[in-house]
Amino acid sequence: METAPLIDPFQRAISYLRVSVTDRCDFRCVYCMSENMTFLPKKELLSLEELDRMCSTFIRLGVEKLRITGGEPLVRRDIMTFLRSMSRHLERGALKELTVSTNGSQLARFADDLYAAGVRRINVSLDTLDEDKFARVTRWGRLPQVMKGIDAALAAGLRVKINTVALKGFNEDELFTLVEWCASRDIDLTFIEVMPMGDLGGEDRIGQYWSLKDLRVELSKQFTLTELSHRTGGPARYVRLEETGQQIGFITPLSHNFCESCNRVRLTCTGELFMCLGQEDNADLRTALRANPDSDAVLEDAIRAAIRLKPKGHDFDYSRQEANGQVSRHMSHTGG
């Protein structure tokens, strides 16, 4: 079998795979999914064994960073079995990092197990420190449960990064509260512009959009921001706040397109490979996987063919006061 690395048409090496292990979640965040979601039949989802085979094939083809997402990945039954299995690739050095993105609801239960499986870094979605607003934005979530989970993660030795979606009229007034709370816990913080994805039952994406350019202006009123060249393999750009020493990230798909250095692809829980978060083009890898249970050759060919179709960039654009470039699937389907 070919073992040449995965190189896209723009000479970018694909070394980062984000894998959604479930479309289900115990929250219903307003920018991510509708309150009354219809989830996929279980037979359409890749089994844990199939996820293992799929991820192992990508690792054999040069993927060095694996991020497990959802939905909420920790609500997938027996997910720790899969994560423990992936740790073999860490032990032999083929996989450099195994990370998890979570809403934090299950961390009190799983933090120690995650560390034991080789996870050293997690991303926790948290848009507000106000209990009532948290219940409103997540619809079903409870802030104390998440805070308990973050405490458990820190106690287990996990490095925690908070991802906060910047929402106009919702968490603008908490900018400094969030920054100072993270500084006090030695937690990294990244702000994300809201992305135009999925039918959210009347949610106003343009009304929600808070440009991170504007957020940075606000931040600079209280702190000295120093640009950093540091990268983690993702789309964030970082600054250091000189007064606290902490690192703040900005993910700006709308006000600054980050596609030129994109090294990642996204695998859904049904085996679709999305070569770009902001495009509808995808490749069906589940058929190749299931049609050939005794060989990965056809799967490898299907992966290579998909990477050859990776576009140069996405088309998200709010500049004309309409959500141009909007894609129809929910963020929970693709895995962020």
Rank of each mutant, 00 (worst) to 15 (best):
Ala302Trp: 02
Glu35Asp: 11
Arg77Thr: 10
Glu203Asp: 11
Tyr238Ala: 06
Gly245Phe: 01
Arg136His: 12
Glu280Asp: 14
Asn163Lys: 00
Asp204Met: 05
Leu45Thr: 12
Leu83Gln: 04
Glu272Lys: 12
Tyr115Met: 11
Tyr209Gly: 09
Gly271Val: 02
Ser87Asp: 01
Thr3Trp: 11
Arg76Leu: 05
Ser184Tyr: 08
Met331Thr: 03
Phe316Ile: 01
Pro144Arg: 03
Thr102Gly: 04
Gly70Ser: 01
Val160His: 03
Asp284Tyr: 07
Thr102Val: 07
Leu285Trp: 03
Ser20Trp: 10
Tyr16Asn: 07
Thr164Trp: 09
Ile187Tyr: 02
Met54Glu: 07
Glu44Gly: 10
Ala288Val: 11
Lys148Met: 14
Asp281Lys: 14
Leu215Glu: 10
Ala291Glu: 15
Asp52Glu: 13
Thr270Gly: 08
Arg24Cys: 02
Ile303Phe: 01
Leu189Ile: 00
Asn123Asp: 09
Thr57Met: 10
Ala116Met: 13
Glu242Pro: 11
Asp112Ser: 14
Gly245His: 04
Phe82Arg: 05
Asp173Ala: 12
Asp284His: 04
Arg60Lys: 13
Asp173Lys: 12
Trp140Asp: 13
Ala152Gln: 03
Ile248Asn: 02
Leu178Ile: 00
Glu193Ala: 00
Arg92Leu: 11
Arg28Thr: 03
Leu154Phe: 10
Leu219Lys: 08
Tyr318Ala: 07
Asn257Ile: 12
Asp23Pro: 04
Arg286Ser: 13
Asp317Val: 07
Thr138Cys: 03
Arg159His: 13
Leu289Val: 01
Leu175Asn: 08
Gly249Trp: 05
Ala156Asn: 08
Leu273Ala: 03
Ile248Thr: 05
